[in-house]
């Protein structure tokens, strides 16, 4: 199918984009890589009189890595994330997730900013960025603010981006020593949305015990869900086997999956439980090696 008629705008600067957003207000929508928006427009599920393509704006495609962490421009493509060696080194969960999003063609088009700002609970990067403690930079005409990843996602397709704002940068704090992350995804086929996904970030103390842990779930509710109650289970523990079952139960009890074509709530909870154990194990193994 083909989209309904729309006017296409391709601003070259943020200021130009802000003025278009101001001019067209509710009749406009930002287009980044188009991974989600273009299929919706082509199937005529979604249409908008004005499409503002921010892809030509300079300065939003950088990956900057310094002592305090990473600053990733919102137009960095999923493929760029996947192939950046330093990202894979510092934030393996980002690499894990990026390499499993859709297929290579879509990864060449889709962007980190779009993956976040679309607010789809099936998108993989929100869970990863929540566990990594990322902060999002939102710019508007004449100003900017930051939002914590953990508070950014409000509901299905609803985020904390206000009209007139553009997500420009993702800031991720540099992980401490003995810290590692991992992302796992259960799906029918490569390229599919997940039945469930899980991101884990673990920091270990010098003695090899767990100091802190965060986990977040993809495709397990109306928005990304952070697993609660993990610190009590894991803090000070060294042995995977002593905590795996409890972590699994915590992940399952935080999840709010729904019945659909891909399976019942019961089945999805089972998948989430297995994912939690497998992801915990992988993250612990990676952290120990650091």
């Amino acid at each position: 199918m083909n989209p309904r008629e729309f006017e296409y705008h391709a601003p070259h600067s943020l200021d130009e984009a802000f003025s278009l957003l101001g001019k067209y207000g509710d009749e406009s929508k930002i287009l980044a890589g188009g991974q989600s928006l273009i299929p919706l427009m082509k199937s005529r599920i979604f249409s908008m009189p004005h499409i503002i393509d921010i892809g030509k704006i300079e300065g939003l495609r950088n990956i900057e890595i310094n002592k305090s962490g990473a600053r990733i421009g919102s137009l960095v493509t999923i493929s760029d994330l996947e192939s950046e060696r330093e990202i894979a080194e510092l934030f393996p969960a980002i690499h894990d997730a990026a390499s499993q999003i859709a297929d290579p063609l879509i990864r060449n088009a889709g962007t980190i900013g779009g993956n976040i700002a679309h607010g789809d609970p099936g998108n993989d990067l929100p869970a990863v960025l929540v566990t990594l403690g990322a902060v999002f930079v939102l710019r508007r005409s004449g100003g900017e603010r930051t939002a914590d990843a953990s508070k950014f996602f409000i509901d299905t397709l609803e985020t904390d981006v206000h009209h007139g704002e553009i997500l420009t940068e993702i800031v991720i704090p540099r992980p401490g020593k003995k810290t590692a992350s991992a992302y796992l995804k259960a799906k029918k086929s490569a390229g599919d949305f997940s039945i469930a996904g899980i991101s884990t970030c673990i920091s270990m103390e010098k003695d090899g015990s767990i100091g802190s842990i965060r986990m977040a779930l993809t495709s397990s509710g109306p928005k990304v869900i952070e697993v609660t109650g993990l610190e009590e289970i894991c803090k000070g523990k060294k042995d995977y086997n002593s905590i795996a079952e409890k972590v699994s139960v915590a992940a399952v009890s935080s999840a709010k999956p729904s019945d659909d074509f891909y399976g019942t709530v019961q089945y999805k909870k089972k998948v989430i439980g297995i994912l939690a154990k497998d992801c915990l194990k992988l993250a612990m193994e990676r952290a120990e090696k650091r």
Binding site: K188, S189, A190, G191, D192, F193, D260, F261
Partner: peptide
């Protein structure tokens, strides 16, 4: 219809 996309209706892909 629950299988309105090719992803839902399922096809074996190269990895399979």
């Amino acid at each position: 219809l629950l299988t309105g996309s090719i992803s839902d209706a399922g096809l074996p892909t190269a990895e399979k």
